[in-house]
Amino acid sequence: MSETMSMNWPAVRAIYRFEMGRFWRTAGQSILAPVISTTLYFVVFGAAIGSRVSAVDDVPYGLFIVPGLIMLSLLTQSISNASFGIYFPRFAGTIYEILSAPISPLEVVLGFVGAAASKSILIGLIILATSALFVPLRIDHPVWMIGFLLLTAVTFSLFGFVIGLWADGFEKLQLVPLLVVTPLTFLGGSFYAISMLPPFWHAVSLINPVVYLISAFRWAFFGKADVSIAISLGMTALFLVICLGLVTYIFRTGYRLKS
């Protein structure tokens, strides 16, 4: 029985390395794409428009958009990496190997979500490094910045994992990231402080969960937030718990995994 209780770490490592292998295989695309898009954002929002926008909360506009840019990629990359990671074996049929191996659901999640989160964190750090080429970086709370980066990457990778298990076609795989997450991120204050909005839209924005993520992340950089850090942390933790609950339900019932 002790064998049943102990963790199958080699399996976690195998899944993690296999998934990271996909990332490194397409390293040119994986790394170059965020560098190019970040550069474009800086050209458009930093140089072209940013030069006409005054500082936001005493932070130059070019610098102000850095946390939002990182968060934008972190959310979309976490979701797409994790959802594709688990959906592809289901689509190709190779999921049989995972299901018939001596692996617990927790180990499967650790392998897939760990790899997806690692990839998106790497991309986040690449965007941060690229930003340093355009603006002098300022990070008031670096430990919190790393903490929020990790928490967001893991939470949204879990969310992506749920989407990858739920989707029964490539269209559905793209549905949530394209139609829900990207608009919420753009409207969540990536490029502005929600305090800049009229009162009505300011209130509406508070329904958007991404506002809390970006606000907290921006606080880690500049010490200023749209909403309180405690609320941001609470909202993120709540979403993490919901995702964990969904994953647990899926593995317990075998939904879309086992017949």
Partner: peptide, 23 residues
């Protein structure tokens, strides 16, 4: 069914299977 990871190499996919079984 002939279900394989199209983009993987033979050595990688066989080594992956061994890892899954905790070895």
């Amino acid at each position: 069914e002939l279900t394989t990871d199209a983009f993987e190499t033979v050595l990688n996919t066989v080594s992956f299977s061994r890892g899954l079984f905790g070895l």
